[in-house]
Each structure stands twice: as C-alpha cells, then as structure tokens.
Simulated scan of single mutants.
Amino acid sequence: MAKPMTKAQLVAALAEKSGTDKKTAAAGLEALLDIISEEVSGGGAVTLPGVGKIYCRERPERTVRNPATGETMQKPADKVVKMTIAKALKDSVNA
C-alpha cells in the first residue's frame, strides 16, 4: 500500500493542476475544508462530485465493554462523521 499523500503534496498537486501558485492553492484547500467542516458540524452534508458524500450521523446510547477489564458501561449518544464513496470513484479504482 502506498503512503498517503501529505497536505503539502496535495497543495503542490492542486497548484500544478490549476495553474496557480502554492499559496493560492493552499488558501483554496483551507477554504474548502472550512466549508465542509462548518456544514457537517451543523448537521448538513456535503457532496463532492465524483468523490462522495460527507455527512454526520448520530449514534444512540449503548452498552460497551472494556476489553482489558471486562467491565460494561453505558456510552452516551454521540455523533460521527461518515463518508459514502461515489460510484465513479469506486469504478476508477477497480478499473
């Protein structure tokens, strides 16, 4: 498995593909991440065409077990961020 792309590598690739400098590409990436974070934390969802849908899902309160001690306890309800991958991306990976 290849190493994941770092933020610096992503900014450099984005700058090259869009024909801008790295500073502009970094600002665009930061703006995109801020928009996604605000929307998802507010209970909404963001669809990135060709990539997938990022959304927040609520998990109900549940009983969990500590594997080290075997003790059971109640875990309060919480929220998790989920992502559904777009069919186009799945198809491109499996092609």
Results as ranks from 00 to 15, higher is better:
Met1Thr: 02
Lys3Trp: 15
Lys3Tyr: 15
Lys3Glu: 11
Lys3Ser: 06
Pro4Cys: 08
Met5Glu: 11
Gln9Tyr: 07
Leu10Asp: 01
Leu10Ile: 05
Val11Lys: 02
Leu14Asp: 07
Ala15Thr: 04
Glu16Ile: 10
Ser18Phe: 13
Gly19Pro: 05
Lys23Met: 03
Ala25Thr: 00
Ala25Glu: 00
Ala27Cys: 08
Gly28Ala: 04
Gly28Asn: 03
Ala31Cys: 08
Leu32Gly: 02
Leu33Val: 06
Leu33Tyr: 10
Leu33Cys: 12
Asp34Tyr: 14
Ile35Leu: 09
Ile36Leu: 01
Ile36Gln: 00
Glu38Gly: 05
Glu38Phe: 13
Val40Met: 01
Ser41Asp: 10
Ser41Asn: 12
Gly42Cys: 02
Gly43Ile: 00
Gly43Asn: 05
Gly44Gln: 02
Ala45Asn: 10
Thr47Val: 11
Thr47Arg: 08
Thr47Lys: 14
Leu48Gln: 00
Leu48Thr: 01
Pro49Arg: 13
Pro49Thr: 09
Val51Gly: 07
Ile54Leu: 11
Arg57Val: 10
Arg57Thr: 07
Glu58Val: 14
Arg59Thr: 09
Arg59Gln: 12
Pro60Ile: 10
Thr63Phe: 15
Val64Asn: 13
Asn66Gly: 06
Pro67Asp: 01
Pro67Val: 00
Ala68Ile: 08
Ala68Val: 08
Gly70Cys: 01
Pro76Asn: 08
Ala77Lys: 03
Ala77Gly: 03
Val81Pro: 04
Lys82Gln: 13
Met83His: 11
Met83Asn: 10
Thr84Gln: 14
Ile85His: 11
Ala86Pro: 04
Lys87Pro: 02
Ala88Gln: 08
Ala88Met: 09
Lys90Leu: 08
Lys90Phe: 00
Asn94Leu: 05
Asn94Ser: 04
